[in-house]
Each structure stands twice: as structure tokens, then as C-alpha cells.
Nucleic acid binder design. Structure first.
Length: 121
RNA sequence: CAGGGUGGGCGGACGGCCGCUUCCCGAAGAGUCCGUCCCCGCUCCGCGGGGGUCCGGCCUGAGGGGGGAGGAAAGUCCGAGCUCCACAGGGCAGGGUGGUCGCUAACGGCGACCGGGGCGCUCCCGCGAGGGACGCUUCAGGGAAAGUGCCACAGAAAAUACACCGCCGACCUCGGGGGCGACUCCGGGGGGCAAGGGUGAAAAGGUGGGGUAAGAGCCCACCGCCGUCCUGGUGACAGGGCGGGCAUGGCAAACCCCACCCGGAGAAAGGCCAAAUAAGACGGCGUUUGAGGUCGGCCCGGCCGAGCCGUCGGGUAGGCCGUUGGAGGCGGCAGGCAACUGCCGUCCCAGUUUAAUGGCCGUCACCGCAGGUCCGAAGGGAUCUGCGGGACAGAACUCGGCUUACAGCCCAUCCGCACGU
RNA sequence: GCGGCUGUAGCUCAACGGCAGAGCGCCACGUUGCCAACGUGGAUACUGCGGGUUCAAGCCCCGCCAGUCGCU
């Protein structure tokens, strides 16, 4: 069983990090999610989530974030290290973990060019 | 019985796997950062350099243990604590509250009481107007004889009352008739009246009688109202006696008046550390004859006070504290109608910051629908199987309320043998 | 966290507390061979929602909802 934790070092926490990810050219989207990916030079992947006020209530926003976090956590093996992954939800109602996970993996592979994957330190 | 009303409570449980956050313990490890220890130098406080890693702290951390959303955490509508503004002073302006008494840290909250309004196949009294009892319900409920303003349309008239239809023909007068005459009859005018009609949300007390030409508080009785005194009550008020023929329409959630309350800003408060630009340019005001500040406006007084304001240009926007033990929860006893309070015992119960408290699965319980079986006279109930469902909503300094949202369940009480079956 | 403003016909806006209106748009008819323009007539609103005050509320008061703009 691979270690599937989600500590703070795997999260994006700065305003500047989010702004940089939005400026990145590596983008992909499908009906469920939208992804902005960016090289972070840290040798590990990091996750950022933005759920707008369009989703009215706080519990609904939390639900979306939790599902995306869970999908990220369980599928980290399939993601390229050294990248920041900023996700935005496009579908906001009746989400399931399975569809979020499928979308997340697919978009990550689509947005990140395999050649640019940095060597492990 | 179903189904409702009112008040109160709960807001799924258990297990498996994988995670998040915080606190504590901590095998072991590393750096040589700080303290400490040793040596050396300098002008003996101290400072600088070198070294050791025994001890303490910091750092990393296998593993173990404890805690981890709500009744509304929400809206931000009130009230406080707390922090800063030197103290939080006076007046104006502004805002808020509004029956009384109490509770409270405080409140626009809560409790009890008082007083209005509305409703009743209800009851009692009265010829009647109406009064009383009971039950339910509702009220932002100070002041309208300080002032100002408004009251559309309709209507004759809307607050100095008034006279369209109408009623009267006592008094004055004109015309006509009858009678010898005293006088009398008819019609009109001046005039008298406000009972009836009609309008309106509202028509200037009401009912019954007397009275009159007709009428009218004109007079009387009762009901209502006003004034005054007495009694009871802390009080709002209540009850009673006496007096007055009745004045005082409504609106203050219109301006306003009265009483009481309110200094401002808010944890992005505020404090500390680190990092970074620059001692930037131009313009204006000012240094004891005082700029500016004292986070809403004006004035006065007091205080601080040498810088302040505008435009352009540039830099940083990271960490720690505040930050969770409190008007605190639970239980018992006592006081009070109650809100609530006192005493004793006991418990420690989130502390995040792109923001934790979760994800998936299973079992049970719950609810709805469909079908079967059983019980009952029936409405229904019990049980089994299958399918579906699980609300409103996420702490962000902390409390007390208010308001709003909410699947389903439980308890108490009331309506309901029926106008649902 | 603190504060302001707005909500009325399909759209943009009016309305001393007294019967909710204007412009554009829409519909019908006329005009034209047809269309546009023009002319005539007409429809369209539980004034965001729920209460209250008042004889009477779009307007006054209270509570919600939605939108929008600021400050730090």
C-alpha cells in the first residue's frame, strides 16, 4: 500500500502561488473539473483548490474541496511530481468520488507534458 | 383512530479500511543555533576568536495516547466583555427606546402584572342603549385641552361645524278665502329646528321617557365621558362617593413635545519579531499668535503636539502573541408565581488561517411507496419482502438575546367518537 | 469585519399617503404589390416577499430575500 497521506507540504497556501498557477499555460478542462498546472521545482506535487461563491453554502463548498482532496490523495502515484495542480470545479452538484478521481487523473496527464517531468532529487 | 395546535427535547448508532488537525508522552537522530563549560586575546563591566558536546533548550521524528462544529455555528438586527484612541468632560445636532413592576453585566431580550381592540350557535342582568362573567385571540401600548400640518373621492357640511332633501308655521309679514264680530282657514316670505333620509373611514355622545309649533342635554333616569375626593395597590391601575349637561373627532410607524439611554472604532482591534525601499521629487499649511490629531458633524473647554496634507515614484504585504477557563456546562439543595438568583459538589469541552473535524463500504434503527400475512366492527395497527430517501446548514476573539432556515423522531398537554374515515 | 444604495409593464425609468404612468418593445387594423416608416386602437403590474400603522401604503414602520457599490 503506497503512502497516501496529505500533509501540509503538499498544499498550495500562498496567494502568489495561486496567481502563478493561473498564469501558467498548462491548462485542461472537462465537464467536471478545470486544471491549471505549473512546475514548482520542489520535487513533489502540490494541490490547490478554488471554489467560488457561485456555490452558495459553505457545506457545499467544503464537500467539493473534500472530494477533490480525496481524489488527489488516492491517485498521487499517477501524477507527475514537481508540479502544482490548481483545480476548479465545473460541475458543482451531485458529485461522486469516482467521477472526480477519473477527471482529475485524466486532466493531469493531459496538461502535463511528459518530457518536462523533472528528475527526482 | 387518523390528523392537527401549543410547549420542551433530539438532530442517527455501531463496525472496517484510508486520511486531516491540535495537544501530551516519546525510541532514536542531526545541526552546532542559543544557554552552559574549557582555553586564548583585548583597557579588569563586557566584547571578540577557537574548542568540547557532559547537561538544558531549539529542530527532525518511528510509535503511543487524549480532544476535534451547531441548534441554529447562519443573517449581522440589538446588548455586553475585551483592545486602542491621554481622560471619556459640557452644549447643539443626530440616533435609539416608550403601559407598570421585576430579572439581568446589559439590552430593543425575558417574566409576571395592568389596560385597550377583536371574536363567540356561550352564560347572566337590562324595555333598550348597554353592562358583567368565561374562553380564545391580538396590541411598537407616553403625550392630540404646547404648537404646526394632513383628512382624497363622495357629501349641504370634515373641525371656527353645517342645512341639500326634510320637519315646523309659535313670532313678524305679504296675498287670498270664511265670519256682523272676537276670530279662523289656505298659500308664500322672513324665520325656527337638527329628529328622519342620504354621503362617507369618520357627521360633534347613546338609549328610554318627558317636553315642544317642530325640535334639541332643553329637562329627567340609565349607559358612556370629564373633573374632584376617598380607599386599596411599590406601580401601571382598580373600586366607590360627590360634582358637571358634555366640553375634548382621527392621524404622532406626519413634523413635533416629554422621559430615559448612546463618545468612536473594531480582532483586518491591538502588541512583538523578521524582511525591504528610502533618508525620493514637486506643491500647500505650520512650529507657542499652534499645522495637525483626539476615526461620523459643529461649537466650547481640556490634552497631545513638530510635523501634517495632496500628487507622482518605489518597497514590503511573512511569522508569533492576542486565542480560548467562560456573566461556562451538568447534578443536588434552597428562595421566588415566574424570568432568575444563591450555596455545595463535579467536569474541562474545537482552536483552524487556501482555512482541519473527512472519504468509501457494511450492518442495524428511522421515514415514504408497492405487495403479502395477521389482528380489529371500522378508521387503522403489527409484521415480512422489495425499491427509494436522510433536512437546514460549517466555528474564525468570546458571551447574552432576537430573527430566519430545517428531513425525521421522542415526551407532555389540548382539540378530536366527527361537518376526514 | 464594517457600511451604503437599489428592487414598479418584456427593457429603461416616473409617480405631495388618495384610481400606478411615460418612452421603447409587443398585438390588431389601416396604408403598400410586399417590407420599413407612418396613422388609429389595444393588451401587458397581487409595485421582490411576509406582517404592521392608517379610512386609505409603491410611498411610513418592522422582519426576510435578491442584486449592487464601497471602506479597511
Amino acid at each position: 500500500m503506497p503512502w497516501a497521506g496529505y500533509p501540509k507540504m503538499l498544499r498550495m497556501t500562498r496567494r502568489s502561488e495561486f496567481d502563478a498557477a493561473f498564469e501558467s499555460p498548462h491548462k485542461a478542462k472537462d465537464p467536471v473539473l478545470q486544471l491549471h498546472a505549473r512546475l514548482n521545482g520542489l520535487g513533489r506535487p502540490r494541490l490547490g483548490i478554488v471554489v467560488g461563491r457561485k456555490v452558495r453554502t459553505a457545506p457545499a463548498r467544503n464537500r467539493i474541496k473534500r472530494l477533490i482532496r480525496e481524489a488527489f490523495r488516492l491517485n498521487r502515484e499517477k501524477l507527475a511530481s514537481g508540479w502544482d495542480y490548481l483545480f476548479l470545479p465545473r460541475k458543482t452538484e451531485k458529485l461522486t468520488l469516482a467521477e472526480v478521481a477519473a477527471s482529475l487523473v485524466k486532466l493531469a496527464q493531459k496538461a502535463v507534458p511528459p518530457a518536462e517531468e523533472p528528475p527526482k532529487p
